[in-house]
Design a protein around this nucleic acid. Sequence first.
DNA 1: TCTGGGGTCCTAGGACCC
DNA 2: TCTGGGGTCCTAGGACCC
Length: 446
Amino acid sequence: MYALVDVNNMYASCERVMNPRLLGRPLVVLSSNDGACIARSDEAKALGIEMAQPWFEVRHLERTAGLVALSANFELYADMSSRVMAILGRYAPRQEVYSIDESFLHWEGVRGDLIATAREMRATVIQETGLPCCVGLAWTKTLAKLANHVAKSAERKPGSYPRHLAQFCHLGRLSEVELQTIFAATDVGNIWGVGRRIRERLVTGGVKTVLDFVRADTASIRRQFSVVLEKTLLELRGTSCLDIDDAPASRQQILVSRSFGKSVTTLEGIVEAVSEFASRAAERLRAQASVAGAVNVFFTTSPFREHDRQHSLNFVVPLPQHTADSRLLVAAAVNGVRRHFRPGFNYAKAGAMLMDLQDAKDANRQAELDLFSQAAGDEPAARARDRSALMQAMDGLNHRFGRDSVRIGSAAVVSNGGEVRSWSVKQERRTPRYTTRWDEIAVVRA
DNA sequence: TCTGGGGTCCTAGGACCC
DNA sequence: TCTGGGGTCCTAGGACCC
């Protein structure tokens, strides 16, 4: 039996835990640069604010509807998430942390009352973190996702589903008739794995609800769409095709990209930003004990500025040998920028992606075994150890004294007088990082 | 003025090999 | 006249997820 546990409006709920005055008010959390709404409280949804809607389009609601908008405080959300996940992990033998606000749980051959377990689990999460969640239970992961959708909707949208399914929905406990009623009342686009495009094609073919979909022919779904969608269909019929992934493999690519707070026109501006992104990516690379074989760099103008001349650059810089050394990765990225940069454009966004990742241990062993590597000009093992020790020291200092205490020279360009870097993201409404910074810790007054 | 930032998987087609 | 078949690897693009 699978459960899918999902924190309600995660980001908005985290802000409310730290500032209860936000309870009951329409609240949105904004993406970097305060550009678009990436999370909404129920009250904000009721105002008609859409996911990813640009902030400037809804900004007037601040005055007219008491809307509150906050810049995303990802450090807070990540910390709250890890607390929630740790609690959920206590309730099931296997857990897959699926995203910052969702977790699959798996019980094999359990007979007990899982709804009772779910109730206790939800109460514990609320008690220990203040965050509300909903639980969907079913025989497969795709059905558990659907059950979770029902649990959420039954709680928040009166009339959508039977009220007794609010917060906890166990599809395995429903009669065939009840199940079909729910399937018939659910748009096919709410299925996990059916996005906008596939939904359009399904609806055009007359498949509008989950019920229509489960009655479709597997072979023709496979033919017209893909094996992926065929699996989705089988899962909805109760045949488990997706196993719980409780030992996630390390990432196959690491991307750091940002839109700029204001556009960048100069080579030095792009160099500065790309250095910073490559440097951040390298930190994550070392955190998962990998090495990279190439750096993919891109920078581009904004398609939304229709009067600007548009230009995008995207290139891959291969490395002579795999590495996790920030200095080498940043240097490769910067050299690429210097070679490819074209002036005369208002660049709006850039990114650095580390590719061709390998396990650092495997890469080392490979290098030691390769009798020809030194003859070919690769560095001796001793030097490689020095590199790794230096990076470890850098990561250690940054962990202890705060991000950017030590960093790579070319990424450290800061304008005189403490002025922010030209490309820096705009974040005017960020709340304190209450749980991860001593100097921003929450203060409680009696 | 102002439009997010990460990821994954699958497929098709071309190069190349035997 | 007639020009194989099976395999791998790589890349680009498209779909999805949160």
